[in-house]
């Protein structure tokens, strides 16, 4: 066997000349690229259209009512008095209660799964947390409405009796010190709604935190152990500082979801339109519950006002979610955020 070299052919020399290369897609590729771009554009139109439409529809309302739309607390379209001060405060009250309950539970559950749980059951626990996130919100609403609310009302009476001197725990007309307090004043409150919302946002925050904790560099963990740290010492010195971005980001993602939650709140919270910070007291309102309760009998002007309220809600959640994504992405942990 011998290797034969191709004979040099002067006539074909121009074949090795530089040739033009193009990044432009041709044939089936062009169809693919253009149709993919079309799909992307249509999704951009659909999703971006919602935001633009909200702004467009909200404009007449904002023009008409001006700043009073944000400072007025009553929602009485018949009297031409419309404002979202009470519901915005109520939205934040419910979300604050929810995060006060959900944050410690999410953090400790994430720590338990990533640090304490036996390796054998860890994947199952992760699946269970994901399953918790997939349970429909109406079911949590039902659970909190029927099963939890009696206990929550009793707890609220106890809080009022012992901590009623703190303004946010006071309940007007609750008669906490009497033998039989008026339990209905303590039910259907922002606190009860917050419990249901906490169940919804806890798994979401927990999933983000756990993912960040599990990315802790094993070298640093082992270094802390080699220096004689206990398990809690490792958590405090390595895991928590490393996962700080995930903790903040997960909490804010949960907060964004808590602000927009509708059905559990509409089910539990008795509608009331006064600006109040007393979370244990019956009655309140959130932007989303307002929309759910008032869309049916709304005239076109009212619909525009509801859309303006929806726009405010969307902008608040958008800012919080964006901040969460920025915090998680810029932190050392840099974990992806799954909504």
């Amino acid at each position: 066997m011998s290797t034969t070299l191709p004979a040099y052919d002067p006539a074909g020399a121009d074949l090795v000349a530089p040739r033009a290369l193009s990044r432009r897609a041709r044939g089936a590729d062009a169809v693919f690229v253009h149709s993919a771009r079309l799909v992307g554009a249509s999704v951009l139109v659909i999703t971006g259209g919602v935001a633009i439409f909200l702004g467009w529809q909200a404009f007449p309302t904002l023009q008409r009512y001006g700043w009073s739309f944000f400072t007025e607390s009553q929602w009485q379209p018949e009297a031409d008095v419309i404002g979202i001060a009470a519901v915005v405060v109520g939205t934040f009250a419910v979300a604050t209660v929810a995060m006060t309950i959900a944050f410690p539970l999410a953090l400790t559950t994430a720590l338990y799964i990533s640090e304490y749980a036996p390796a054998r059951i860890k994947p199952t626990l992760v699946s269970l947390v994901d399953l918790m996130a997939a349970v429909p919100s109406v079911i949590y609403g039902l659970w909190a409405y029927i099963l939890i609310m009696p206990y929550a009302a009793e707890f609220a009476v106890w809080m009022d009796r012992n901590f009623g001197w703190i303004p946010i725990f006071a309940v007007r007309g609750g008669d906490a010190d009497s033998a039989i307090p008026l339990l209905s004043r303590y039910s259907f409150s922002a606190f009860c709604a917050g419990i249901a919302v906490a169940m919804m946002v806890m798994p979401m925050a927990c999933a983000v935190m756990r993912q960040v904790f599990s990315q802790t560099p094993p070298g640093e963990r082992e270094a802390a152990l080699a220096l004689g740290a206990t398990r809690w010492g490792v958590i405090r010195a390595v895991v928590l500082p490393f996962g700080r971005g995930g903790i903040i980001g997960g909490t804010m993602l949960g907060l964004g979801r808590a602000l927009g939650e509708t059905i559990a709140v509409a089910l539990i919270l008795a509608p009331a339109f006064d600006v109040k910070f007393r979370v244990l007291e019956q009655g309140g309102g959130t932007v989303s519950a307002l929309i759910a309760n008032r869309f049916g009998d709304a005239s076109p002007t009212q619909l525009s006002a509801l859309l303006a309220a929806g726009l405010v809600l969307f902008l608040i959640t958008l800012v919080i979610n964006t901040l969460a994504a920025v915090v998680v992405n810029r932190s050392r942990s840099g974990a992806g955020v799954e909504a």
Binding site: G256, I291, G310, F314, T317, N321
Partner: peptide, 9 residues
């Protein structure tokens, strides 16, 4: 950004 859209909206 639109994943932040509340479902009611």
């Amino acid at each position: 950004a639109m994943t932040a859209l509340p479902s009611i909206v």
